[in-house]
């Protein structure tokens, strides 16, 4: 293992702990959220940060084929956001 490889691996391994800690803090807001839009905000931020975390993990596993998962996860989290926004708005404006 060259010096560059061990340097990158150690740095990204330290990075992972901060990501996991912030995921747990987002989950506190998601379980505690008083209204529906608060929970939507929490799961939105959780999904986008999970996409960035999957990119970092696919560098760390040295397996570049894992990268399309991040793109797909981003697009479907956005779709969930739009569904709930349409539901909340149709109740006031009538379909």
């Amino acid at each position: 293992m060259s010096f560059l490889e061990s340097w990158i691996t150690n740095f990204l391994t330290i990075t992972m702990f901060f990501y996991i800690a912030s995921f747990l803090l987002y989950l506190v807001r998601l379980f505690k959220g008083p209204t529906i839009p608060d929970m939507i905000l929490a799961i939105d931020a959780l999904g986008y940060d999970l996409a960035a975390f999957l990119i970092i993990l696919s560098i760390l596993f040295k397996n570049p084929v894992l990268i399309p998962c991040a793109i797909v996860l981003t697009l479907w989290i956005y779709a969930l956001d739009i569904y709930v926004a349409k539901y909340l708005e149709a109740k006031e404006m009538g379909e």
Binding site: I40, L50, L54, L66, V84
Partner: peptide, 24 residues
């Protein structure tokens, strides 16, 4: 509606599990 969001959270957690098991 809250149940839908919580089941989406469960799906997100399972996504991370399937990714860690190397099944893209």
């Amino acid at each position: 509606l809250k149940a839908v969001i919580l089941s989406a959270l469960q799906s997100t957690m399972y996504t991370l599990m399937f990714f860690l098991l190397m099944a893209p």
